[in-house]
Simulated assay, not measured.
Amino acid sequence: MGKYQNILLDLDGTILDSGPGIKKSVQYALDHFSLYHQPEEKLRRFIGPALTDSFMRVYGFSTEQAEEALSYYREFYPTNGIFDASLYPGMEECIKTLAEHGKKVILLTAKPIFFAAQITKHFRISDYFFLEIGTELTERDSSKVHLIEKALRDGNLKKEECLMVGDTKYDIDAAKEVGIDSVAALYGYGSPEEIANANYSIQKPLDLRSLV
């Protein structure tokens, strides 16, 4: 295996197809604003980015409305949405192989770590991670740039040995801004156009092994 020793993996849309639970939870929040039966195309845009940003971007909510919507989302998600998801085929084998070959596999998600840690334990992959990086429930800055920088500090990682794997522009653009290489997960929720600037791309999780 090559120069990349530290593999930073996005959660939603990269490790996990978490779309069903997230979309149901977003719709529950939108119901409180009389936005019923929203189209799939809009709901899927909430998978990956920070939720408050998505409520503002997709529906034009004010900051206050977005915070209120987030509180409704969190009423529903912990009991009805969090485990309504599935690992992408081959992902567990991929993570396990990387860890067994001495790679530092790092979870890097804009999701609150309170939820993310429950998810990795539920799907029995938590033991493979060197670090699990997410946001705090009260944290304002959930940008991927902030999270990558936190991973670099907490793990004492060298940028040139890091590889960010994600399915949206938020992952790929953040990696570029911080100065690390990236992999576009084409099987996730982002469009191929928005992640075209990645250094590499993969069609399925197991393809990652040949890059590192």
Rank of each mutant, 00 (worst) to 15 (best):
R153S: 10
D127F: 06
I106Q: 05
T135E: 12
Y128T: 05
Y72A: 10
K121N: 14
E68R: 08
F115I: 07
K103F: 02
D127Y: 03
L108P: 02
E92M: 08
T138W: 09
F115L: 08
D84R: 00
S126F: 02
V145E: 09
E92R: 14
S126V: 00
S86I: 03
K144Y: 02
I113D: 06
S86D: 14
M91R: 07
E100W: 02
L87A: 12
E149F: 01
I133F: 01
E149C: 13
G102D: 01
R140H: 05
T97I: 05
A85I: 00
E136A: 15
F76L: 06
A85R: 11
A99R: 12
L107G: 13
E68N: 05
E67M: 13
I133C: 10
R140T: 13
I95K: 03
F115N: 10
Q65G: 01
E68G: 02
E64W: 09
E132S: 15
T120R: 08
A85E: 11
K150N: 14
P78V: 07
L98I: 07
E132K: 15
A117R: 15
F115H: 11
V145A: 02
S142W: 01
F114K: 09
E100N: 06
L137K: 10
L137Y: 00
N80M: 11
A85F: 03
Q118R: 12
Y88N: 07
F115A: 12
K111T: 04
F115P: 00
P112V: 10
D127S: 15
S62M: 07
Q65N: 10
K150D: 13
T97H: 07
A66D: 05
A66P: 04
P78Y: 12
K121V: 14
H101L: 04
K150F: 07
R140L: 09
F130G: 08
E75D: 14
L108F: 05
G134F: 04
E136Y: 14
E75W: 11
P112H: 15
E136D: 11
S62Q: 13
I133M: 05
S86C: 09
R74A: 05
F123T: 05
L152Q: 13
S71Q: 15
I113H: 13
L107N: 11
Q65W: 08
E67P: 07
V145F: 05
T138Y: 11
A116M: 08
M91K: 03
S86A: 14
V105E: 14
V105M: 10
K103E: 00
K144D: 10
T109E: 00
A69F: 03
I148C: 01
L98R: 02
G134K: 06
G81Q: 03
E75A: 04
E64R: 14
I148A: 04
C94Q: 07
E139Q: 15
